[in-house]
Design a protein around this nucleic acid. Structure first.
Lengths: 419, 419
DNA sequence: CGAACTTTATTCAAAATGTTAAAGAAGTTA
DNA sequence: TAACTTCTTTAACATTTTGAATAAAGTTCG
């Protein structure tokens, strides 16, 4: 590939026809700063081949030489890094409450961020408009040139057809059915967009910047208003045949449990989600259990939220503690089942419940140890995410960025069938 | 690659350094008989490149030209096929009751088969010796030359370290702990061996010769003395990080259910396995339910087996029918949960319960429809295997054969890390 | 200190792998 | 029979990769 072609592709959609460009970039992203010799080891490319490929990538503006690394008894390596401002992506997280947008650089660092209320109750059209404006605002604020923005990634906690870029259904707001978000944004803003479920986007963020960096197989579960989740297999987000894989939230945990809005009974979501925690607390109080919570909501049981239960538990309230423990146990059953099926290295519990911390994590771990197969459970870690509220926007942006680091269709290992 | 190298590799372990040889062989295996033009389409290789690669493979004895295919309005394709007797593999299925061994050709057809009683009660040493002898016997009987036998694949329904080739634990027989089967067989017979869980081997058989041929993502569940299962993802057997992925049998289905010998309570296995069916039937009879089964076992409730329950159900016995229906419902919960997590194209119920047929399948399907997420369940098929008792040996042999059709470590898409 | 050794990076030629354009082969269609 | 398709191969050329040799820049140790 000649220099002209590469330079023409900066800011474009393609890195070049050679998949090894992407492979090298991905190696630098994951293990950088890193020298050429190590790149050769990681990628299985020969040493001499790395030199010209890296030279191309430096000329193209994606890589730069940095300081020298430590010698291992010989010539020290010249460390290579990504050039953070080579390209950018926009990440948007449309949550039930908050609308977040961020400009994210090639190193997956947030450059500029805006957080607003979603005001979803204003209706579909208003929310869409608000989203567009926020995107424009964050681009403006970041001072990044439009031609360096590779795309817009959007995560929302609904059912999404990722391939077509359509939001099939967003439970939180009326009117969000079959909305071709990708097309709308492409037309309005002239930038390509990618849509996905926000939990899946967060899973991606964990694998790039979180506890799961360089972990081959892991599971991510986020407990919030619903239970979102994502599954990472062989270093990639697993979507399944129809694009809906990894739905931990709708696993049947109690055959005779409460009805879920998916139609099933006793889904994990009906037992551990924020509203489920509130409901279970309310039921206990209605049966006459004494608790600090009554004070906290001034007697109005409809005011109970999971946050209040967590706060009460931390202040030593017995009922609240029990509710959270039982919540953890339910979640533990779901996680243990998933561990038996996926045998991952790691399970990450998302930031939605990070305030609960060990209150939730301890019973989860206990149940996993008791219920998952020993060979699988003794090697798995269960941890709480460290990405905080940024996971959503980061992941959404990574939906875009990851294409830069992913080889195109290659001869070897091709799996899909052309007819 | 020159002719000499290729020919030197017939019967050896490597096809050559070019991954596209394996890619083409795999394409012919999956879609053959097939012409060169279609091979080009499937593999994404260019037409002219296919010609010399196929020529090499023909010279090497792996492929042959066959009849002409139907014209699509132009020159008809020269169809290519695998040469069945280019190479062979031995498949061995060490079951609790039966010991099976077969010589299987490159097309995964059984050439010669031997079935014996396992006589596991005679102890580890005897069983091992019996296995060795049976392998030698089946090779002898098949008249296949030893140098054409690429390896021995062994499936057993225990816990297996596939990578090391060690049987960690076989619940059915005492003394089977930490047995380095791969090493033992390699030393005794001088042929390389591969060991795996028999349900995983069966999963492989389904993907090559069964209902799951050319299906990207599917789940296999075999209900027998235990519940074995395997998961196929992106066209490959998924093993997870520790090699124990896909354990559907130990999913918690009833939080307060019976104790399982894995230590957990209410595993799927404790509710739907053959012994579980017998136990549940016995419990019902002990509580005074009237049933044909009592006659069938001549009043001795310890004689109840799942086969008898199925037989009674087929003769219209109400209790037996209800037991089988409830069994199907439990299995359905497990399958529905797995569908939500994996979003497969297909679920195959193994031959172990094929005699029960729709007695089991109907409730499974009903529960899947009710409990799995609609987007996932409306596209999934649930079927009973058509491979019968051969699934085990076939799959075991395919553990060996599949290496012929799998590209080696390639630059592009390399995932593992060399340090 | 300096010679010997390591490790990293590059150069260059040869080998292999792959592509495109064009032509030949063998049918169908009208 | 002529025109058109589709399949396969040829030939010229471009790309990708490797291997051997070399240079660069340290560490190690007598």
């Amino acid at each position: 590939m000649d220099e002209k072609t590469i330079n023409a592709n900066i800011g474009g959609n393609k890195l070049g026809s050679n998949d090894n460009y992407a492979l090298i970039l991905d190696t630098v992203r994951r293990f950088g700063p890193i020298g050429r010799a190590d790149i050769a080891k990681f990628t299985n490319l020969s040493g001499p081949r790395v030199t010209p490929l890296v030279r191309d990538l430096i000329r193209a503006g994606f890589l730069k030489e940095d300081e020298f690394g430590a010698s291992k008894g010989g010539r020290p390596p010249i460390l290579l890094r990504l050039v953070p401002d080579a390209l950018f992506a926009i990440g948007v997280d449309i949550g039930a409450a908050k609308l977040r947008a961020a400009v994210v650089d090639l190193e997956a660092k947030i450059v500029t961020k805006i957080v607003k209320a979603t005001n979803a109750s204003e209706g579909k059209k208003a929310t869409l408009g608000r989203t567009m404006n926020t995107i424009l605002e964050v681009i403006e604020k970041s001072k990044v040139k439009t031609d360096k923005i590779k795309g817009i990634g959007i995560g929302l906690s609904g059912i999404v057809d990722h391939r077509e870029g359509v939001c099939l259904f967003w439970p939180n707001v009326e009117g969000w059915k079959n909305i071709p978000l990708k097309k709308i944004i492409g037309q309005e803003l002239g930038i390509e967009a990618v849509i996905d479920d926000s939990a899946r986007a967060m899973t991606l963020a964990e694998s790039w910047c979180g506890l799961a960096k360089n972990v081959e197989n892991f599971i991510f579960v986020n407990v919030g208003i619903g239970v979102g989740s994502g599954v990472f297999i062989h270093g990639e987000l697993y979507r399944g045949s129809g694009g809906t894989a990894g739905e931990l939230g709708h696993m049947t945990v109690d055959e005779n449990g409460p009805r879920c809005n998916c139609g099933n009974f006793g889904c994990l979501e009906t037992l551990v989600s924020g509203p489920a925690i509130a409901r279970r607390t309310r039921e206990a109080l209605e049966q006459g259990v004494v608790s600090l919570i009554e004070e906290l909501v001034e007697g109005d049981l409809n005011k109970i939220t999971s946050e209040i239960v967590v706060a009460a538990a931390k202040r030593g309230d017995k009922l609240a503690f029990n509710i959270m423990e039982k919540t953890g146990e339910y979640l533990g059953i779901g996680v243990a089942n998933a561990i038996n099926l996926f045998n991952p290295d790691l399970v990450i519990i998302g930031a939605g419940v990070s305030k609960a911390g060990r209150l939730l994590l301890d019973p989860v771990k206990r149940v996993v140890k008791a219920r998952a197969l020993q060979v699988a459970s003794e090697k798995v870690d269960v941890k709480i995410s460290i990405l905080g509220d940024d996971a959503g926007v980061l992941g959404a942006a990574i939906l875009v960025l990851k294409n830069i680091f992913t080889a195109g269709v290659s001869y070897v290992g091709r799996k899909s069938i052309p007819f």
